[in-house]
């Protein structure tokens, strides 16, 4: 049994699904929060996988996500927050969902 992979499995099973769930919500800020946490969890998961599979170079993925993730979230926050065009379009006769 490999503790690092078990930890990864725990993270993927119990930490990422809530993030996906929250990211499906209506309010853009909640979605953003979900995405943000997912980025963090995924970055940690990459590092754990690198250790678990004994391939140190997988750690580069964690590095890249740690660098890109906040940038992505900031862009989202800026384009969403700056414009507030975020409430989903509701049209007459929109029966979807």
């Amino acid at each position: 049994m490999n503790a690092w992979l078990v930890a990864t499995a725990v993270l993927l099973t119990f930490a990422l699904p809530p993030c996906v769930w929250v990211a499906c919500r209506d309010s853009p800020q909640e979605r953003l929060a979900g995405l943000n946490l997912a980025t963090t969890v995924a970055a940690v998961a990459f590092l754990l996988i690198a250790q678990g599979f004994q391939r140190s170079s997988y750690g580069d993925l964690g590095l890249v996500l740690a660098v890109l993730g906040p940038a992505g979230t900031l862009v989202f926050a800026r384009l969403l927050g700056g414009s507030a065009y975020d409430v989903p379009a509701r049209r007459a006769g929109d029966e979807q969902r």
Binding site: S27, P28, Q29, L32, A33, N36, T40, A43, V44, L47, G59, G62, L63, A66, V67, G69, P70, T73, L74, A77, R78, L80, G81, G82, A84, D86
Partner: peptide, 28 residues
């Protein structure tokens, strides 16, 4: 060292993004 740097990056990035998300929420 690389792992620690990544940890610091996540921590720093996380706090900044949390602030930005908070601001976006406040604007909303």
């Amino acid at each position: 060292v690389k792992l620690l740097i990544i940890g610091v990056l996540i921590a720093a990035g996380g706090s900044v993004t949390t602030m930005a998300v908070g601001r976006a929420t406040a604007q909303a």
